[in-house]
């Protein structure tokens, strides 16, 4: 199993507080991974570091077959290299239609002039319709995304990520605020997506993680506490201590 992303020995601190300390983490090219951990474990900071939002103080982040270093690259550059990120709160462009949202995400030229002279081809529109079907929004293409329900916005955002055609997807709490049915659908989308790419899901909800049925990484105080199947890690005394307190 070849490695897509390898994070090794990464640390970052804010005003002396070490949010991430000596974190090492690797993920294969096609893999679904859940990252869990209590509040303040550094889950979001970990995503920030990988996506370039936060700069690591030390350590190595290598990407792809060539092992390109991601440290010091801009968010946009990292995104173009194939890392997509979904925020915790659904962030879609509410003032624009579902179609516009997906078109913006669709893998295409990202440069200013490329965008300026871009006119959607029929192929692009078909792909957008296809993705919209995938996330169950085929009937809502021309609606403003601000009018969608919370769950629909979450799916739209996931759809936008998939339209980006990334090799790695980082997803922050996708199931928050969803009804059980919606969760099920979300699980399906993620599991399907992970067949062709790497997907990392940060989640609090153990039920949801169990449903994903994948390898789990437990973060605590900025480093990996345990790794393995959900049953394996929940059997780990250290994990139990961290979650339940001593």
């Amino acid at each position: 199993m070849s490695t897509l992303l390898e994070v090794s020995g990464v640390s970052v601190s804010f005003d002396g507080f070490r949010a991430i300390s000596n974190l090492s983490f690797r993920i294969a090219k096609t893999e679904l991974r859940a990252v869990i951990g209590p509040n303040g474990a550094g889950k979001t900071t970990f995503m920030d570091i990988v996506t370039g939002k936060t700069r690591a103080d030390e350590g190595r982040i290598s990407w792809g077959d060539e092992g390109t270093s991601l440290r010091g690259l801009s968010e946009a550059r990292i995104a173009r290299m194939g890392i997509g990120r979904k925020f915790q709160k659904p962030t879609v462009f509410e003032d624009q239609t579902v179609q516009e949202n997906l078109l913006m995400a669709l893998k295409n030229k990202r440069g200013v002039f490329g965008v300026l002279f871009y006119r959607p081809s029929d192929r692009d529109l078909d792909r957008v319709a296809e993705w919209a079907g995938e996330i169950g929004l085929a009937d809502h293409l021309l609606r403003k995304s601000g009018e969608l329900s919370h769950g629909q916005k979450q799916w739209l955002e996931i759809g936008m990520l998939l339209a980006q055609d990334p090799r790695l997807l980082l997803i922050d709490e996708p199931a928050a605020g969803m009804t059980p049915q919606e969760r099920e659908k979300t699980t399906d989308i993620l599991v399907k997506a992970a067949r062709t790419r790497a997907v990392v899901v940060v989640e609090h909800d153990m039920d949801f993680v169990r449903r994903l049925n994948c390898k789990v990484t437990v973060l605590h105080e900025g480093s990996v506490l345990a790794e393995g199947s959900l049953d394996h890690v929940t059997a780990n005394q250290a994990v139990v201590d961290v979650y339940l307190g001593r």
Binding site: E75, R77, A79, G111, V112
Partner: peptide, 9 residues
């Protein structure tokens, strides 16, 4: 930020 993470500079 969202636009940035979509890969636009």
């Amino acid at each position: 930020a969202r636009v940035r993470f979509l890969g636009y500079s």
